[in-house]
């Protein structure tokens, strides 16, 4: 007794639950009377078991999806990213996808900071030289933020990156304090009433010249406050 091609197809449809009740019933009767068919049936189920074991996989928790802008804004190029979607149990608590819209500015900035931390490369331009970072930012965004050197105070400049806030590309400077990154984003708008922390990240903002600087980080709040003072002092100094 052997299996024909039709037997194999019928078995396939049966194990996949695609036979209607009548045909499934008839097929089960055949299974109980035909050892070859029954053996094949067992083997397909065994195969299914080991496939499920071998092929189960979860997306990496730090997988970040960068969305392009709507077609009408495509001319602005890669910088016109409209939104980011971050996958992460750490962020949602449930391992699901979190939608980062523009609920508020604070959330957007924190998201940008988190995204930068999770990206293989947290910065678009890597340099500890403010004379490299500042002109690079100036060529990429409308604002021309002040980039200050705070290395002596323990805040090392690591580079700059372009973020998208309210659909506009903005420049961010990235500093490092021990193992923590600090993102400082320069905005033309003058936001007020920003919350001081979100999802475990601290937020401080201040006005200097025409710009508002918003610092986001998971360093200790005291450190971020110190950072703000130093940054303010440096940007409101005689160089301006």
């Amino acid at each position: 007794m052997s299996l024909g091609p039709n037997d194999e197809l019928e078995l396939t449809a049966y194990v996949d639950g695609e036979l209607d009740a009548m045909r499934a019933f008839a097929f089960e009767r055949r299974l109980s009377g035909e050892p070859d068919l029954a053996r094949r049936h067992d083997a397909v189920l065994a195969l299914r078991g080991c496939l499920r074991e071998a092929l189960v996989c979860e997306p990496p928790r730090n997988l970040v999806l960068r969305m392009p802008a709507a077609p009408s804004r495509a001319a602005a190029g890669w910088r016109a990213l409209a939104a980011s979607f971050i996958l992460g149990a750490a962020l949602t608590g449930a391992g699901g996808w979190m939608y980062l819209g523009r609920e508020d500015l604070a959330r957007e900035l924190v998201s940008d900071h988190i995204r930068a931390q999770l990206a293989p490369q947290p910065i678009d331009i890597a340099s500890s030289d403010r004379h490299t970072v500042k002109p690079w930012l100036a060529t990429h965004v409308a604002q021309s933020p002040e980039v200050v050197d705070l290395a002596a105070e323990g805040f090392d400049l690591v580079g700059g990156r372009i973020d998208v806030v309210d659909r506009m590309p903005v420049g961010s400077m990235v500093y490092r304090r021990a193992k923590h990154l600090i993102s400082v984003t320069a905005l033309l708008s003058a936001p007020s009433g920003l919350r001081d922390s979100l999802d475990g990240y601290h937020i401080r903002y201040w006005r200097a010249g025409d710009l508002t600087y918003v610092a986001v980080s998971d360093v200790a709040p005291d450190d971020l406050e110190t950072f703000e003072k130093l940054y303010r002092a440096a940007t409101s100094g005689p160089t301006r």
């Binding site: 024909g4 037997d7 080991c50």
Partner: peptide, 14 residues
Amino acid sequence: DATETPESDLLRKA
């Protein structure tokens, strides 16, 4: 050959 069916136990141990 469609009749060439490996032992289910063999598959389970893969």
